[in-house]
Computed example of a mutant assay.
Amino acid sequence: MGNRFQDKVVVVTGGNSGIGLATAQAFASEGAFVFITGRRQAALDAAVKQIGPRATAVQADMSKLADIDRLYDAVQRQHAHIDVVFANAGGGEFAPLGAITEAHFDGTFGGNVKGTVFTVQKALPLLRDGGSIVLNASTTSVKGTPAFSIYSATKAAVRSFARNWILDLKDRHIRVNAISPGVTETAGLNELFGGGASAEGVKSGLAQMIPLGRVGQPAEIAKVVLFLASDDASYVNGVELFVDGGMAQI
């Protein structure tokens, strides 16, 4: 393993499973101190065991500002600064137009949009000048998906944040980039697709639409996050980097 992040302080929201967990593991393997969040304490405890001694877990719902404050209070108790923020927490459910409820709308925008805004904004006092922010968007922001319009709209907003925040933060030389994963093998995706044989069938069908012919793995997404967060991407700013096997390009 490399040491691009030796003794750097990294925050990964939604770091107890899937892409977040794989990314937290990758940062820790390169020497970072990693703070992860999640809503389920048991999953957080299991994630810390997987990541190792450089991980600290904070139970938090990132749509709640008080929980975000607790996260950064925990960081500040151990470190004087943050080097990288990966705003990854979020999720969505299917709801076709005609069946969208206020609760569905508020919950999805609360977690994906409000959560991202305040995760980043509240990190700024601790985030070092020259630091890096990576936002988790999605290919759904550029490709139509049945019954997924609210989630897709939230991810379009997340991508827009990167374009605008690089201007707000230019005097501090903080880079802001977005990744847009495609179909990725996670527990959350399997749950969204109904689990078991149902999920496997949906993923198999989607794989036929991906030029690489398969779904992605969380570790593959993590490698791209680390690239964007590292000095290897020192002149990359405001981009949306698709990590989808080519699906959004056809």
Rank of each mutant, 00 (worst) to 15 (best):
S141T: 10
I150C: 08
G245P: 00
A147E: 14
V158M: 03
A187Y: 07
K8Y: 12
A207M: 09
R70F: 06
D69P: 02
G182Y: 00
K170V: 14
R40S: 08
M1N: 09
V34M: 02
G15K: 01
L192R: 13
T184A: 07
I51M: 00
G245V: 01
G201V: 08
N177P: 00
H104E: 09
R40G: 04
G115S: 14
T23Y: 09
D67N: 11
G213W: 11
G216C: 10
V183W: 09
E240T: 08
L189W: 09
G90A: 02
F86W: 03
D171F: 03
A74W: 01
F148W: 14
F105R: 00
A162Q: 02
R172H: 06
A187W: 04
D83H: 03
G111W: 12
R54G: 10
A157T: 05
S160Y: 04
M62C: 14
A60D: 04
M209D: 14
N136P: 07
S234C: 11
L124G: 08
G92W: 04
W165T: 04
A123K: 06
V224G: 04
L124C: 10
K203D: 11
E102A: 15
V84G: 07
L127E: 12
A248D: 14
Q78P: 05
D168Q: 04
W165C: 07
V58R: 02
A229Q: 11
L226T: 04
T116H: 11
V134Y: 08
Q208R: 15
F242G: 10
I150H: 11
K203G: 12
T56C: 09
H81D: 10
M247K: 12
L44A: 05
E191I: 07
E185G: 04
K170Y: 13
T140M: 07
A22L: 03
V11I: 15
A32F: 03
V58A: 07
I19K: 06
Q121H: 08
Q217M: 04
T101I: 06
R40I: 06
A46L: 03
I250V: 13
V117D: 07
W165K: 02
T101R: 07
N136T: 15
V48S: 01
T23E: 06
S132D: 03
A103S: 15
D168E: 09
G18N: 15
L71I: 03
A248Y: 12
P125V: 12
G196F: 12
R70N: 13
D171C: 02
H104W: 12
G196C: 11
K155R: 02
V75A: 08
A99Y: 09
L124M: 13
E93V: 12
S198T: 13
K64S: 12
A219D: 11
V158Y: 01
S230G: 14
P53R: 11
I166C: 05
V202S: 12
G38C: 05
T116N: 11
Y151R: 04
D232M: 07
R175K: 13
D106G: 14
F227H: 05
G201L: 08
E93A: 13
D171L: 02
R172C: 05
T101W: 07
T140S: 15
E185F: 10
V142G: 15
G90R: 00
A219H: 08
F105T: 00
L169I: 03
I166H: 05
N136D: 14
V48F: 02
V142I: 15
I150D: 11
V176N: 02
P211D: 15
K122H: 14
L97K: 11
G245C: 03
I51S: 00
V158N: 00
